[in-house]
Design a protein around this nucleic acid. Structure first.
Length: 424
RNA sequence: GGAGAGGUGGCCGAGCGGCUUAAGGCAACGGUUUGCUAAACCGUCAUACUCUGUAAAGGGGUAUCGGGGGUUCGAAUCCCCCCCUCUCCGCCA
């Protein structure tokens, strides 16, 4: 959500944001409905004022006068009820429209229509293609099946397409990666938490996933709850409807959760292996800080650094990409993806996503703090993947495969795997 | 899942149709007093929208007593539905 005043006062800026983000939002309609709302509200307020004053008079009046006044106020009551009905309708429409208005992106974000407009910021580590291995390259599916690291067929048997079961050393590797990431975040001083993964719809609106991305979410409609696609949802919502004091900011949280995604728009895409699946585990970092662009930007850098540190510990080559306006999504102010090199795809592929929202989520969540002058302000929120598995196992297995068919375990993971140096 | 009791400002807690613009207390903040601290005393002490107004400020109005609907000239107060919390019972990792 953005401030409606901004739509009134900086209409062109908002229009440009809609265009830059490749969205369609009827700004004129919003302005019209907002005007109508204010008109009705003023009338409502005036009538209520009249009603309240009359109420005082009636309380003190004699019997006859009381009856006369009451009858008179009956008319006012009817008008108030009519206006209330109109107002409710207008407010509902305005709210619905407002939920679709994008955050105005950073002037520094590259402008572009889609992923093609994203800009590489930096690279780390040496990449290797299939031909560079010096022995017949096997992709992660072949490695996993031969070493019994996961079972895709039985995953489908249990839960349908895009499901899987990690087994044996595969499950161990999955846990090891998450535990390494956990320890890195503990060292960074973030506060760990466990959070519900089945949450209210209100929270999905609050974090900006609804209404636009409803199709991508599993609904438990009988209970009016949703399975989250990321721990960002409950963690960012943790302080919703609160006014934090300045001295308790920033809040730096990290939470592991299973993430559920319908992948509704991706039918037929990335169907092989563990790349695009309906559930996975992710360690997510979330920062809530004061509404200061520089402060917010500083934390954005910090949470990206945490993720890079994790990838470096895993010895994985990656690049950081700045996401352009057309690809960043409705709520984002600025966004970076980290893409890890995957030899089977002969490409860097998205494994992390670092977003700065400014006050977009905080407004929807009513997440505030009291500033230096004691005035409530909306916080800024940010989040980034620390590690998501099993997707990260794709480059991990492929890049560490050995000529003899085994897989080398990276140094940093060995202590989480009982000292195991290789998987055979 | 069954039975009962509740949900009022940052917290405690009164109010159960119109002298409530939500009493009183605690905490917090500002001030007076003081050698310092404490105490005492005085003051401030919700949020949102809106109108008015200013260099800042300020002032007026409306809404909000878990959420929604209803009754009434008038609802924190009465009625209905929902949500949540607590106690007891049942079930359970």
């Amino acid at each position: 959500m953005i401030d409606i005043k901004r739509i009134r006062e900086e209409t062109d800026v908002v229009r440009q944001a809609v265009a830059d983000k490749n969205m369609r939002v009827d700004i004129d309609r919003i302005l019209a409905v907002d005007g109508k709302r204010r008109e009705l509200e003023t009338e409502f307020n005036n009538l209520r004022h009249e009603q309240k004053q009359a109420g005082e008079k009636i309380a003190k009046a004699g019997k006859d006068e009381k009856a006369a006044l009451s009858q008179e106020m009956g008319k006012v009551k009817a008008r108030i009820q009519a206006i209330e009905e109109d107002l409710a309708q207008v407010e509902a429409e305005l709210n619905e429209l407002m939920l679709t208005v994008p955050q105005v992106p950073s002037p520094e974000s590259p402008r572009g229509p889609d992923a093609s407009g994203n800009v590489e910021v930096r690279k780390h580590g040496a990449t290797r293609n299939k031909a560079d291995f010096g022995f017949p390259f096997r992709d992660h599916v072949e490695i996993g099946e031969s070493l019994k690291l996961f079972d895709l067929e039985r995953g489908v048997k249990l839960a349908g397409s895009r499901n899987y079961v990690l087994t044996g050393a595969g499950a161990m590797l999955h846990e090891a990666v998450l535990r390494l990431a956990w320890d890195i975040m503990m060292e960074a001083g973030f506060t760990p938490m466990t959070v519900p993964v089945l949450v209210t719809e209100k929270l999905m609106y609050g974090t900006g996933f609804f209404p636009l991305h409803r199709d991508e979410v599993y609904l438990c409609e009988r209970d009016e709850q949703c399975l989250v696609g990321t721990a960002e949802v409950p963690v960012t919502g943790f302080h919703g409807d609160e006014i934090l004091s300045l001295d308790e900011l920033p809040k730096t949280y990290v939470a592991r959760s299973t993430c559920f995604r319908r992948e509704a728009g991706a039918a037929g895409r990335d169907t092989r292996g563990l790349y695009r699946i309906h559930f996975f585990d992710k360690l997510e970092q979330v920062v809530v800080c004061k509404a200061d662009a520089a402060e917010s930007a500083k934390w954005h850098e910090k949470i990206i650094a945490n993720s890079e540190k994790t990838l470096q510990a895993l010895e994985l080559p990656y690049r950081v990409v700045e996401v352009c306006t057309g690809d960043m999504g409705q709520g984002k102010y600025r966004m970076y993806d980290i893409e890890t090199w995957m030899p089977s795809r002969e490409a860097y592929s998205e494994t992390h996503s670092a977003s700065a929202f400014h006050d977009f989520q905080a407004r929807r969540l009513n997440l505030r703090y009291r500033d230096e002058n004691g005035k409530p302000q909306f916080c800024h929120t940010l989040n980034n993947t620390v590690i998501a598995s099993p997707r990260i196992l794709i480059p991990l297995l492929e890049l560490n495969q050995l000529a003899d068919g085994g897989v080398r375990v990276p140094e940093a993971l060995r202590k989480y795997m009982g000292g195991m140096e290789r998987i055979d």
